[in-house]
Design a protein around this nucleic acid. Sequence first.
DNA 1: CCCGATTGCGAAAACGGTTTCGTAAATAAA
DNA 2: TTTATTTACGAAACCGTTTTCGCAATCGGG
Lengths: 338, 338
Amino acid sequence: MKELAKELSLSVGTVSKALSDSHEISDDTKKKVAETASRLNYTLNPYASSLRNKKSKTIAVVLPEVADNFFSLAINGIQSVAEKKGYHVLIYLSHEKFSNEKSILSECCSGRVDGVLISVSSETTDAQHILKLQQQNVPIVFFDREFEGLHIAKVITNDFECGYASATHLISNGCKNPVFLSISSSLGICNHRASGFKAALKDKKIADPEKAIIECRGTKEEVDWQIKNLLTGKTKPDGIVASVERLAMSVYLVSQQINISIPAELKVIVFSTLETAPILNPPLTTITQPAFEIGKTAAELLFKGIEKKKYNLFDEIITLPSVLIERTSSQPCQFKKK
Amino acid sequence: MKELAKELSLSVGTVSKALSDSHEISDDTKKKVAETASRLNYTLNPYASSLRNKKSKTIAVVLPEVADNFFSLAINGIQSVAEKKGYHVLIYLSHEKFSNEKSILSECCSGRVDGVLISVSSETTDAQHILKLQQQNVPIVFFDREFEGLHIAKVITNDFECGYASATHLISNGCKNPVFLSISSSLGICNHRASGFKAALKDKKIADPEKAIIECRGTKEEVDWQIKNLLTGKTKPDGIVASVERLAMSVYLVSQQINISIPAELKVIVFSTLETAPILNPPLTTITQPAFEIGKTAAELLFKGIEKKKYNLFDEIITLPSVLIERTSSQPCQFKKK
DNA sequence: CCCGATTGCGAAAACGGTTTCGTAAATAAA
DNA sequence: TTTATTTACGAAACCGTTTTCGCAATCGGG
């Protein structure tokens, strides 16, 4: 910028004001400045600006995983509004580890970002790291995976209802012993889905609701093994609701291996935005979240918090409904293939 | 930091040195500084540091789309090394638009990032925006989708060979009229795959290689329509190689709609890392790229360029091989289902 | 024609660190 | 004891912008 000023024999202050279209500067010199700036293809140093303005024009997105259809669609939604606002997006992955999430959030302070969108890891049972960030006046919005009991804005979906709907759907299609595969008993979102599921079992007086919730944690291999055990055990279920994408994939793979036919012997529903659901074998019934919309809405909410200093981001809750898309995997069958 | 200094009755310079573990400072005061720093939970302002050091500790990843298995796995690979190096990752999406890519890269200068990893959009036919960045001494590495003819490092896969292999696989499994679905005639990676494909047709003296390359561009709906026309036309193919994930999904959906049976009437292969490939109907033959590895290797290469000022990033080319995973969708059939 | 208001710009102080250089005290060498 | 060297720290410049404030020059009104 000094060079620019020298080139034009102006002061740096004047150049700065000209570039930011200040009213103090005549249109004439503004034009000259803009012209030589583009001629020397000059762009201003973002960090110097950030330092002075205490605005980074950057938000952080913290999520467990990016190789998951839901999250990648949510990122699309977030990015679409960030781009419109001229903001930059930092992506951080916790890989479902609490320790990672903690160190990530500790990096988000000191003005590195103007706001944080977060979907908590399945291990997160303590919110100190989140509260610490909030105390530093960093606007925060949960999307999808919230942490309950905090005064922090969130954009979520109707998990309880969908859990309820998934169970009633299975039951009305003939299941006597449906189970729910959870990934974490500490994850609010998963518990809501499970609670809805249990409530339906209770209402329909089917099975023991408490025994119908099965927690699947660990690596992919451990989960595969766990599901294999479940499906070959003596009290094997005739219906499964998978709370996330990868659990359903496990169920499909294992069923294929040990020759269990879906939906004749086992009906399956998954909470997922999986694009390949209609072309799976068999086509998979999904409860599809409005992933893009959730990301977009959360980002819009965050920017409300960033822009209006007085805007209270504390107790805002937005619920966007998911839809159950019925496909072959949960269809009733007159005859049971043996 | 001033407060810290006051609290300890030291100068800010001393505190700064203590925090960065300078040899000029005694272990005793270092300890004291560290202690009170964590007590006041102080973290240093990253942008002030960046301003002085001319290092942002941030890299940019520019890619067409994040809701694609290949790219999300590549991001995982990139992130894994960035994290190890203590770097932050900015994600930018071009959505396959050249104009977006251009404005994104123009944001990457002035030291906003220390390096750029890029997979070009399918519209990109001009590299001025990339060269401009390179002139500003920003280290750049292509991953997967390169732009040819530039002196810029790249991490790619053996596209030509795989294109060749895909064609020979189809032919040896009985196809007389295989076609290749491209997404862009300007995309180097796609052309390599297509060239390999054509070379195989020529060697085997099957069909007209030039007519076997079909470009599918436009929205999802337009592509669906185009594929539907192809599959219902009079010279309909009996084998398809899809150059990217979404083309294969289109083929599956359309085939299902108009009742074409795979692999009896149509064999399909796709270049993709689709996790659901084995549980599709039928299981889909893929040419699977080492997506994570590509991302990881590209990032490692980039950091070499960032760290060693003298390291020449110009003509480094790393090729990581993909593998053809044979599944039902391309199997030979004795009888043709009608 | 004179005085107050407006316009257009420069000087300099921030923003929050890092780094160079200087210096006093402590230590080692002579 | 004197001199040279090392150790531990402070003062101040600097990174590239933004912004406040001051100051001329021009403008408008009476």
